[in-house]
Design a protein around this nucleic acid. Structure first.
Lengths: 117, 117
DNA sequence: TGAACAGTTGAACAAATGTTCAAGTGATTG
DNA sequence: CAATCACTTGAACATTTGTTCAACTGTTCA
């Protein structure tokens, strides 16, 4: 047995890591979910919606973005089940689906602040 | 006063949203942090490291990736203060910096599972 | 019905990103 | 000190992604 190799290069060790690994679909789903958060426009939209339900025009006006850009991003957010929508006359109102958005954003903010210390 | 417009299009409302908005740097930092999580290779590396500290060779062997690819991604993870490294002889050992990685991953997993219901 | 408003969508383009390959550094050992 | 192992790095390439523009759908109201 070589003992000039570190433990983590052993067959036993690598087998254990492989055994504990998330399956491929889950890894992809996780990455895809985080990708949705990985854009400043979408972060802004989510932050705005955590204040209140809003229509597309209201979001684009508040954030200084074109309606088209907002609509494209809302579609991405909706596909990820982060926001939901309801139509009322000419307007479509968007709101956050659940509390996970807030947890993810606030955990990330905490990380950023500790990093700066 | 038009009352065929929704509340969220009013000047008062948009001003409130703008006032509550995160500043540009914070939004960018948040997006950049989430971007780091938004890749399946990095998710796999983080998941492996949450089991145990590992050297680069061990990670690449466990996950079936080239050392170069792993090293590039570890640099990204380190720049985001998600992992830290220490050298011991020829080996460089990487480990998670803090508990935020686990919180973010587990919150995201919870979201994915609720989504499926 | 037709004009106006709210929103969506697809194509096109530029910018960002992940992997590979090849060349490099740094530490150990004979 | 030369060889080897562990790791890093930069350039190149293909892929992905966000915005814009233009055309489109859907609703209201006169």
């Amino acid at each position: 047995m070589d003992d000039d190799h570190c433990e983590c290069e052993s067959e036993e060790f690598t087998a254990r890591i492989r055994g504990g690994m998330l399956d491929d679909d889950t890894v992809m789903d996780l990455a895809d979910l985080f990708k949705v958060f990985g854009d400043s426009t979408r972060i802004r939209i989510l932050w705005a919606l955590h204040e209140s339900e809003m229509c597309v025009h209201g979001i684009s006006k508040s954030l200084g973005l074109t309606m088209s850009a907002v609509s494209h991003q809302l579609k991405t957010l909706k596909d990820a089940d982060l926001v939901q929508s309801r139509r009322d006359g000419k307007n479509v109102y968007y709101s956050l689906c659940d509390e996970h958005v807030e947890i993810l954003l606030s955990t990330a903010l905490t990380h950023l602040r500790e990093e700066k210390r």
